[in-house]
Computed example of a mutant assay.
Amino acid sequence: MAVLNPTTSITTPKSPSATPTGPAPLPRIDDPSAVSPADARALSRTLFQRLGQLEEGTPEFSYVRGTLVELNMALVKFVAGRYRTRSEPMEDIIQVGTVGLIKAIDRFDPGQGVEFTTFAIPTIAGEIKRFFRDTGWMVHVPRRLQELRIALAKATDELQQLHDRAPSTAELAEHLSLSEAEIREGIVASRAQTAGSLDIGAGSDTDDGPTLGDRLAFEERDFELVLNREALKPAIAALSERDREVLSLRFGSDLTQAEIGELLGFSQMHISRVLKRVLGELRTALLTES
């Protein structure tokens, strides 16, 4: 196991599951946030192996699972940082990303030979993107219209309870001290929060006939790219674990060289050299295959 930073304290408490012939006591990490990225990966490998040996619901299982979450919170903050320009509070994004991290821990199989970092980042990013999809708008509208939609929803509820019917545009305008044109603009803008289905019949109220999705069909231009990826699979499988991890983070998770270096504890120049070498090997393998 990698040597930990001097600031990180790890003790080995007595575990009720440890016996002279049983597994070794579980290490206790006083401050997981002080563990370096390299040490966190090394400790995570050990803890994942141990997690698979423990029974779910036991104190030891809960401790190992919780420690894995704390050790890998840097991944959540790393992915969440890519969305810092969004209007949602960063605390909410990190909270959602943590849910993705927990899902990644529960689904991860160390026997597949994949680094947890490589597996977790797309899972965390997917959970955050799902959050934006579920709470955001399908198209961008000005903040003024987003706030108007909320005011319209509240005013509609109030007037509907008062008159026992849906309010008219004029009544909404008077209630909100706005013009009828502004009310109509807010109603149109509110429709931008959801999108219609491509399975709906185009220009027809029946289920028969072509759908809008049928009319939008097009020839797949990336078919040759898929074939090339299939041809590269044996060459990628022959790479070292670290080379596959760098390749996956660059082209699977779409991270920059600097971001990969920050995540793995290397310089951007080192990551650049690794990618150049690996891509050269893959290019040679693909040409040989052709």
Rank of each mutant, 00 (worst) to 15 (best):
D109E: 14
V69Y: 02
A238Q: 15
L54R: 01
R28S: 11
I124A: 05
Q268F: 02
R144G: 12
E127Y: 10
L249T: 05
A192N: 05
S253A: 15
F131C: 13
L216K: 04
Q146Y: 08
L279C: 13
G213Y: 00
L54A: 04
G201T: 11
T169F: 11
G126A: 11
L282C: 02
S267W: 10
P32D: 04
N5D: 15
M90C: 10
V76A: 03
L172T: 00
W137Y: 10
R191S: 11
A80T: 03
V64W: 04
D106C: 14
M73Y: 08
F131D: 04
P110N: 04
L216R: 07
Q53Y: 09
K233A: 08
T85N: 12
V69S: 05
A192G: 02
R244N: 04
L145E: 02
T123D: 07
G252L: 04
R283C: 06
S62G: 13
L178E: 00
R215K: 09
G261A: 02
A173K: 03
A80M: 06
S15T: 09
L47V: 02
P16N: 07
Q257P: 03
T85D: 15
V274F: 08
S197K: 08
L249V: 03
E289K: 15
E158V: 06
T211E: 01
T117V: 01
T169I: 09
Q257I: 06
D30H: 15
T58L: 08
H270M: 11
W137L: 10
T46L: 12
I271Y: 00
I93C: 07
P6R: 13
E60L: 11
E230M: 10
V226N: 09
S290A: 13
M269H: 10
E147A: 13
A231L: 10
A181E: 14
E182I: 07
L101V: 00
V278T: 05
D222L: 12
I260Y: 00
L198K: 10
D243V: 01
E56S: 12
A18D: 09
R50D: 04
T8V: 14
I260N: 00
S36L: 03
D157I: 08
A34H: 08
E289T: 15
R273E: 10
A181N: 13
S272D: 07
R191K: 15
D164R: 10
G97A: 03
S197I: 05
R184A: 06
L232Q: 06
G66W: 02
